[in-house]
Write a protein that binds this DNA or RNA. Structure first.
Lengths: 242, 242
DNA sequence: TCGCTTATATGAATACGGTTCATACTTTGT
DNA sequence: ACAAAGTATGAACCGTATTCATATAAGCGA
């Protein structure tokens, strides 16, 4: 009989419940305010039960991050599957980043914390591995678009592997997110809408790779409109500047 | 009489002593292993004395980060003062990054932690401000090189401010550092020496800005040699691949 | 349906390390 | 030499993550 399977399912459901509750608490009180006892209470279970699922607080947070990454992947897949030129699909990747940040405004802070040595080493090996596995496709999706571009003749990688270029784009996006969140510096300098700035930077990087530029638009305004259009068409979401 | 001044100087010296000791402990036991009581003991002072200097553990770490940034600035200044074309000086900035990472292999982990919401909000306002002030020149040095390039006709920024472009380069460098340290992903993909990859990425980004390319070398090998040369000439340091 | 065994849940008790603050000591000024 | 002001000290405190002895429930054969 399927009693074992049901057990497992119920266990998984409870885990999801805990993660939901954790996200709620983080939204309300910030990462700093998250307490295991309070979380257990909110979820109407005992603290010990929480620890049947997660080996530590950091383990829980990493599990949460891993779950959220699934959503990011979903967006990337949509961008990747979009019927458009390789260059346009690359821009869609940047837009996916923007949409993701809008949908999961807490993800950045959570993952930033989880990736710190202190937190990372406090999570279980299993959890760490799961997180890395969840992130791997990210890179591969981008790499595949790059390979497409090479095949289509839009891009000559000149000895650099697709993955290497993907890492560059990824570095730029994640570094930008880092800076714009953490330091107050961005506000001191930037005049333009941060999202537009990121997209322009990505465009520049792609140009620098020698990628055949977008056929249509090049002006500031046209790019903005294209971003809006991608937001609606590919992700069914408005991408207005904030 | 200068008794007040001496006092202040002694106080500052002791603070430096604490920071030195902290760095040593971190080198030995990792960030995770750093304990206030142990640190005080190592420095041969009481815990309470430590707290006369730092309002919390995180405050101490941020102070440490701030101090290390001074060294980074020193490197950037050298790069900036180098008698070379704007484009070469920009490459020197990337090399400065590499040299810095080599000299302060712990800085990344420390600052990564300090910038986390959890740690950031646990540091004193004063300390946070000092950190931001210490970082500000970073951006300005890069921005100044970009302005030079525009003035020299090597670059047409097309409406983007120098700061905006500086942020792009910075994002790329810091994002790359982030990825290469934190995730094990880089090792899974990259074939080339990580430093070379970073430099190439920066080159691509600059190319993408429409920056007049390096006059001499373009091949993989020549760029590597140039990096070596900059390391020795500008920073008096070998930049071999590890 | 009733015991018996095994699996699961519980939350009071523990452990740990950052932080405080009453006390002791040192310096300064008269 | 003595009092006042300024510093340094480290044992005690406190908050919170984590554990684990105990209670509860589920499974199962008779």
């Amino acid at each position: 009989m399927g009693t074992r399977e049901r057990r497992q399912r119920e266990f998984a459901e409870r885990e999801a419940l805990f993660l939901d509750a954790a996200l709620h608490r983080i939204r309300e009180d910030g990462l700093l305010g998250l307490q295991m006892s309070g979380l257990a209470e909110k979820a109407e279970y005992a603290v010990g039960t929480l620890y049947l699922h997660f080996s530590s607080k950091e383990d829980l947070l990493l599990a949460l991050a891993t779950r959220i990454v699934q959503d990011y992947l979903e967006l990337l897949r949509k961008a990747s599957a979009w019927k458009a030129s390789s260059r346009e699909r690359m821009l869609a990747i940047a837009v996916a980043d923007i949409v993701f940040q809008r949908r999961h405004p807490d993800y950045f802070r959570i993952s930033q914390y989880c990736l710190c040595e202190v937190a990372w080493s406090a999570a279980s090996e299993t959890r760490r591995h799961a997180f890395q596995q969840a992130n791997l496709p990210t890179m591969n999706i981008v790499a595949r678009i790059i390979e497409d571009a090479c095949r289509a003749g839009d891009l000559d990688a000149e000895g650099a592997s697709a993955q290497e270029l993907a890492i560059g784009v990824w570095s730029l996006c994640s570094g930008y997110a880092n800076i714009s969140h953490a330091e107050g510096l961005l506000e001191m300098f930037t005049v333009n809408d941060p999202n537009t700035v990121l997209c322009r930077q990505v465009q520049s990087l792609l140009d620098g790779y020698g990628w055949k530029p977008l056929s249509g638009p090049t002006s500031e305004h046209e790019i903005k409109q294209l971003i809006q259009r991608i937001g609606l068409e590919v992700f069914q979401e408005r991408c207005n500047e904030k």
